[in-house]
Amino acid sequence: KCPLCELMFPPNYDQSKFEEHVESHW
């Protein structure tokens, strides 16, 4: 789950994509 927007991600979600998403909040 994204700590900034509460959006849920699947357990096998690509880590780099997840980090990209988190950085999109900044």
Results as ranks from 00 to 15, higher is better:
5 C>F: 00
20 E>S: 07
11 P>L: 10
7 L>F: 11
5 C>R: 01
6 E>W: 06
14 D>T: 11
18 F>P: 06
17 K>D: 07
3 P>R: 04
9 F>H: 10
10 P>E: 09
19 E>D: 14
24 S>N: 14
7 L>R: 14
9 F>W: 04
22 V>Q: 01
12 N>P: 09
8 M>T: 13
19 E>G: 05
10 P>R: 03
7 L>I: 13
18 F>T: 10
21 H>V: 01
13 Y>A: 06
4 L>Q: 14
7 L>C: 06
18 F>M: 14
25 H>S: 01
8 M>H: 05
3 P>Q: 13
17 K>I: 13
8 M>R: 12
11 P>C: 03
26 W>C: 15
26 W>L: 12
21 H>W: 00
24 S>R: 11
10 P>V: 02
20 E>K: 11
13 Y>R: 05
16 S>H: 12
24 S>H: 13
13 Y>D: 09
1 K>P: 02
15 Q>P: 11
6 E>R: 06
15 Q>R: 13
5 C>I: 00
5 C>H: 03
18 F>N: 09
9 F>D: 12
9 F>M: 14
14 D>P: 05
9 F>I: 08
5 C>D: 00
15 Q>N: 13
9 F>R: 04
19 E>W: 02
21 H>G: 00
26 W>Y: 08
18 F>G: 04
6 E>K: 02
18 F>C: 10
16 S>T: 10
26 W>P: 15
22 V>H: 02
23 E>L: 05
3 P>C: 12
9 F>A: 04
6 E>G: 09
23 E>D: 13
12 N>E: 07
9 F>K: 04
12 N>S: 08
11 P>F: 04
5 C>S: 03
11 P>N: 14
13 Y>M: 08
11 P>I: 10
20 E>V: 09
1 K>F: 08
1 K>S: 11
16 S>F: 13
4 L>C: 07
11 P>S: 14
10 P>K: 01
15 Q>F: 10
17 K>A: 12
16 S>P: 12
6 E>P: 07
15 Q>A: 13
9 F>E: 05
10 P>I: 09
24 S>W: 06
3 P>I: 13
24 S>V: 06
25 H>E: 04
2 C>E: 03
2 C>T: 04
14 D>M: 10
2 C>D: 09
22 V>D: 12
8 M>W: 12
26 W>Q: 15
18 F>A: 07
17 K>M: 08
4 L>E: 15
17 K>W: 06
1 K>R: 07
8 M>E: 14
5 C>Y: 01
2 C>P: 06
8 M>F: 09
13 Y>G: 12
13 Y>C: 10
17 K>N: 05
9 F>L: 02
3 P>E: 10
15 Q>G: 11
21 H>N: 01
16 S>W: 02
17 K>S: 09
3 P>W: 02
17 K>R: 11
20 E>H: 11
13 Y>F: 12
14 D>C: 05
7 L>D: 04
26 W>A: 15
5 C>V: 00
24 S>Y: 06
4 L>V: 12
15 Q>H: 07
15 Q>I: 13
25 H>N: 01
20 E>L: 08
8 M>C: 02
14 D>A: 08
26 W>I: 12
15 Q>L: 12
8 M>L: 04
23 E>R: 14
20 E>Q: 13
5 C>A: 03
4 L>F: 13
15 Q>D: 03
22 V>L: 05
14 D>L: 09
12 N>H: 06
23 E>M: 03
6 E>V: 02
4 L>D: 15
1 K>G: 09
3 P>V: 09
18 F>W: 02
12 N>C: 02
20 E>Y: 08
9 F>T: 09
9 F>C: 04
10 P>C: 05
10 P>M: 01
8 M>N: 13
2 C>I: 01
